[in-house]
């Protein structure tokens, strides 16, 4: 079957999709967006988390056909998503994030890539080790800070309780979310 939907603001189309394929498979194997990760494919790890019409979901449990006509944001689109959000929040007066240099990124290293605040905080806090859980955690944490700018530690833990990490023991992930929240607070 054919599936048409929007990913990170761009219309996408996938052909010859087998009906049993998940959104995750279509993103990774058909659309060249492997950022969402395939760690468990049973909704028990959160590494495939994407926003589906704004709501964080496990893309491994969304049938490809179910996303027809819908809007998906993946980790690859997170920086853009955050930039648009900041721009909307600034109501057109100033766009500090949007004015950051774009297009100068080194394709080998990602150096110079524009990052969302939560992505930058994960780097700065040392919240990334193997990094396989990172995309899902970033999407979940970004959504948390969008809806709850000043979460308590327990709120953070609850919001991220669907995202397993095997490397870090979560402490630096907590640090990263606190850091992103604090920076977000300063920026307002």
């Amino acid at each position: 079957m054919r599936v048409k939907f929007t990913v990170n603001g761009r219309p996408q189309e996938a052909d010859d999709v087998w009906e049993g394929e998940s959104l995750l498979y279509v993103l990774r194997e058909r659309l060249g967006l492997p950022g969402s990760k395939n760690a468990c494919e049973q909704g028990e790890c959160g590494s495939c988390t994407v926003r589906l019409d704004g709501v964080p979901v496990c893309s491994c449990l969304v049938a490809a056909g179910q996303v027809e006509g819908r809007d998906v944001v993946t980790v690859e689109g997170l920086a853009d998503h955050a930039r648009r959000r900041a721009a909307a929040g600034a109501r057109g007066t100033s766009l500090p994030d949007a004015q950051q240099a774009r297009g100068g990124a080194d394709s080998h290293t990602g150096e110079g890539t524009e990052l969302s605040p939560v992505q930058q905080a994960f780097l700065d806090a040392g919240a990334v080790q193997c990094g396989f859980c990172t995309p899902g955690l970033l999407v979940a944490a970004d959504e948390l800070l969008e809806s709850h700018p000043n979460p308590s530690d327990e709120d953070v833990r609850e919001a991220l309780s669907g995202n397993l990490c095997r490397c870090t023991g979560y402490e630096k992930i907590m640090d990263a979310v606190r850091l992103a929240a604090a920076r977000q607070g300063e920026a307002v």
């Binding site: 909704g43 028990e44 959160g46 988390t49 709501v55 964080p56 979901v57 496990c58 449990l61 969304v62 979940a140 609850e158 919001a159 309780s161 669907g162 995202n163």
Partner: peptide, 9 residues
């Protein structure tokens, strides 16, 4: 129920 992601679906 499960996780926030699952509760959303």
């Amino acid at each position: 129920v499960a996780s926030p992601q699952i509760r959303n679906r």
